[in-house]
């Protein structure tokens, strides 16, 4: 039957207007930071989640504060990132000679990752994150051991950190310059990519881990100004009204070096303290990273030894068969 394309047909069934189940007089409360200034949120990290990729990892910072019971909308976001590493694999035949491993990074927010929908095309912010990540990883990979080969690091952010509290005016901006959520996302990206690189077995000088710190100046009870400036580890932007400066580092603990540093905002004289706090955050993340990698290694070794013994048994069985038929 020819569909009627000239008019918009009414739905075949009846419709009912949506009813929002907000109870009357529910005060919206900004989530507050309950942990200490130098305490990191709890992390979840696991490697080897994508069987078809040569290395993969999943990273999550679950919701920390309990949900405001009378609201359906979560008061703050959690952070969920997956990463898969493809390679090292040979460059295509028509590509020019490269003496080093060519690294490409690709960061994409899923369309449903944020409160406002993201498009399918990567926007400028996502490309920028990709560049940051590439800088962080290029420094740790020993590229000259893989001439003529390439490696892709693909990151999908399943749930992104917000730039401010959703109930705030303006919504997207927490403080004087926006984009604080991106800093948390970058730190997560660095850590998860590092775990995936280890899972893929690519030679690195060290494991790089990401950490964020921010200089916040929250006023008392809901005012933006005033208050004492203090430096906190691992900020959750929705918990603060006035973030003055932020810093992300990609830190190599065993070499005490920084492969990536991204700082913005006016930290005044406290720049060095801010960097030190970010490095402290990165060191805390590294303990989780090392633990996750060790766990994955243990599993792999166990499986490998099992397979080896299992394979041997099978071989024996086959031999026996041969003997019997012969």
């Amino acid at each position: 039957m020819q569909a009627d394309r000239r008019r918009i047909n009414a739905p075949s069934g009846g419709t009912a207007p949506p009813i929002f189940a907000t109870p009357k007089d529910t005060p919206l409360r900004r989530p507050t930071r309950t942990r200490k200034p130098d305490e990191h949120r709890k992390l979840f990290l696991r490697t080897g989640v994508v069987p078809s990729a040569s290395g993969s990892a999943y990273y999550e910072i679950p919701l920390q504060s309990p949900q405001q019971p009378e609201l359906l909308v979560p008061s703050s976001s959690s952070l969920k990132i997956t990463c898969s590493v493809h390679g090292p694999r040979p460059l295509p035949r028509n590509a020019a000679f490269s003496p080093n491993l060519l690294l490409t990074t690709h960061v994409k927010f899923a369309p449903f990752a944020t409160r406002n929908r993201r498009g399918y095309m990567r926007d400028a912010g996502e490309r920028d994150l990709g560049m940051h990540l590439e800088t962080a990883l290029r420094g740790v990979i020993i590229g000259e051991r893989w001439p003529k080969s390439g490696c892709e690091v693909v990151i999908t952010v399943l749930e992104g950190e917000e730039d401010g509290w959703w109930g705030d005016a303006g919504g997207q901006e927490g403080g004087r310059a926006g984009g604080w959520g991106m800093m948390g996302v970058l730190a997560g990206c660095i850590t998860v990519a590092s775990a995936a690189l280890v899972d893929a077995g690519i030679d690195c000088v060290d494991m790089v881990s990401g950490g964020v710190a921010a200089l916040v100046q929250d006023g008392q009870d809901g005012t933006k100004v005033g208050g004492e400036a203090k430096i906190i580890l691992d900020p959750s932007p929705s918990e603060h009204q006035n973030i003055r400066a932020g810093c992300v580092v990609g830190y190599l603990q065993s070499r005490d070096e920084v492969t990536e540093m991204w700082m913005k905002g006016d930290a005044g004289t406290q720049v060095e303290a801010l960097v030190d706090e970010a490095v402290k955050a990165a060191s805390l993340t590294r303990t989780v990273l090392a633990e996750a990698v060790r766990e994955a290694m243990g599993l792999k070794m166990g499986k490998a030894s099992e397979e080896a013994t299992g394979g041997l048994k099978e071989d024996k069985g086959k031999k026996k068969d041969v003997v019997m038929t012969g």
Binding site: V140, V205, L252, D256, E257, V258, T259, D276
Partner: peptide, 12 residues
């Protein structure tokens, strides 16, 4: 080609 990153003291 150089490996690793930059020491914090040098950044400061």
């Amino acid at each position: 080609p150089p490996r690793g990153g930059v020491p914090r003291a040098l950044v400061a």
